[in-house]
């Protein structure tokens, strides 16, 4: 299932619509890393509200994606991690890491976060 990517000013918004397979996640990563320069985006918002599971592969792919996007000159914010999903991620020992450019949004559905630098 392809994830639609919308451009809103200097921000790209990718809204996950349903459960993603590993290849869907890799496809999303490829698309965002390509589009970030093409769209001259400074920020990427990935809305994962529809993801009912964030396992080790999904969170690793998101972290790598954020790192790649940062190397391309933009920041990534993940919004909409469900409470049960957050609980499972912590039990599993996963994090989104703060150090490599991927940070969770403060509020679900934040549309105009401040992107630094």
């Amino acid at each position: 299932m392809e994830v639609p990517i919308l451009k809103q000013g200097e921000i790209l918004i990718a809204t996950v619509q349903a459960a993603l397979t590993d290849s869907d996640l890799l496809q999303l990563r490829r698309a965002l890393v390509e589009k970030v320069a093409q769209a001259r985006a400074r920020g990427i918002i990935i809305d994962v509200t529809a993801m009912d599971v964030m396992d080790s592969f999904a969170s690793r792919t998101m972290r790598e994606m954020a790192h790649m996007i940062r190397l391309r000159g933009a920041e990534t914010v993940i919004v909409g991690i469900q409470p049960d999903v957050a609980f499972a991620m912590v039990q599993l020992g996963l994090s989104m890491g703060g150090h490599d450019g991927c940070r969770p949004g403060r509020r679900s559905g934040v549309l105009t976060p401040k992107f630094t630098g």
Binding site: D22, V53, Q82, D84, A88, Q91
Partner: peptide, 17 residues
């Protein structure tokens, strides 16, 4: 519960992968 269901689904995802 929703939480236990998600924990189980995540475990299955890891095992299947």
């Amino acid at each position: 519960s929703g939480r236990d269901t998600t924990l189980l689904a995540t475990a299955i995802s890891e095992l299947a992968r």
